[in-house]
């Protein structure tokens, strides 16, 4: 018995749909625009003709990238970083979360470690002491600086801990009766049923590694070994360096740069996200709502 639709209702629906369509379009447009720029001729891009679809369609930019070893090397550095970093990070986080999901009776130092983690989450030494620390460890110019310097996200640990705590005790007790020790319980009982939260954290960590650019800028001295995001940062930096430009200078710079080629590089750096995104996006919704509504 829901009341039949009034005229006001219908107007609301139309207006609402239009607003939502505009918002959705605004989130897609920058990606479409970048793709179109990368597929347009240099003349069309420099002349400011591209608005939505490619003008003077050409694959020239992508052919140029094929010969660009520096670009591919940065992709390679990023892939290694994501794979190694995510594996190590996830391994340490899962191991650490299991004892922390116990009560203080079961594991005495639990609360002390939790408070230490809270402190680490809320306070940091600042950029400069952190930079000096990584330098003192001698990690400059190694891929380990890109993997370790960001530390482990305490937020993610808490996410896993709160998920582990919701797992019924009886499952673990049954395994213990069968003679399982802590490692067996963790790997054979807990991990297999924690896929939703592990997938979420996997997503957060790998996206974090893929998107990070500052560590490359700070810790890698030779641009040949930059990860992809730092490489992209550096192609932009030429236009936005620490000088004030006049309009004429900017025009000149625009003429000399190859915007279509840059757009192709930017688009390629978004491709992994665009490919994996539809598969993983359902997990992170589970993950963050879990993180928020617990307690």
């Amino acid at each position: 018995m829901v009341s039949s639709k009034t005229a006001g209702d219908r107007i609301f629906n139309v207006v609402n749909t239009i607003i939502l369509l505009i918002l959705t379009f605004s989130c897609l447009y920058p990606i479409v625009y970048t793709l179109s720029l990368s597929l347009s001729s240099k003349e069309a891009v420099d002349g400011g003709k591209v608005v939505l679809w490619p003008i003077g369609f050409t694959l020239r930019s992508y052919k140029l990238i094929m010969q660009d070893d520096a670009f591919f090397h940065s992709v390679y550095v990023s892939v290694i970083r994501v794979v190694v970093g995510t594996t190590l990070n996830l391994f340490c986080m899962v191991l650490m979360s299991f004892p922390l999901s116990k009560t203080t009776q079961e594991y005495k130092p639990r609360n002390a470690i939790m408070w230490l983690l809270v402190f680490v989450m809320l306070f940091n030494g600042g950029t400069i002491p952190w930079y000096m620390t990584v330098r003192n460890y001698g990690l400059i110019d190694t891929i380990w600086a890109l993997i370790f310097s960001g530390s482990i996200s305490v937020f993610n640990i808490f996410l896993i801990v709160s998920f582990f705590r919701q797992i019924p005790q009886s499952l673990e007790e049954a395994a213990i009766v069968d003679g399982a020790g802590p490692w067996t319980v963790l790997f054979k009982v807990i991990i297999p049923i924690s896929k939703p939260v592990l997938a979420t954290v996997l997503l957060f960590v790998s996206v974090g590694y893929w998107n990070e650019y500052l560590q490359g800028l700070l810790f890698i001295n030779s641009p040949a070994n930059y990860p992809l995001q730092t490489y992209i940062k550096q192609i932009v930096v030429k236009i936005s360096a620490d000088i004030s430009y006049t309009t004429e200078q900017l025009q000149e710079l625009t003429k000399n740069s190859n915007q279509a080629l840059d757009a192709a590089k930017v688009f390629i750096s978004m491709v992994p996200m665009l490919i994996f995104y539809p598969f993983i996006q359902k997990y992170f919704v589970t993950g963050i709502t879990l993180g928020a509504v617990k307690g």
């Binding site: 940091n124 600042g126 620390t133 482990i152």
Partner: peptide, 19 residues
């Protein structure tokens, strides 16, 4: 189980606080 993660956090979050 705690140690690997804790070492990581101490080295890259706690030590910088000394700085």
């Amino acid at each position: 189980m705690i140690i690997p993660g804790l070492v990581w956090i101490v080295m890259f979050s706690i030590v910088p606080m000394v700085g």
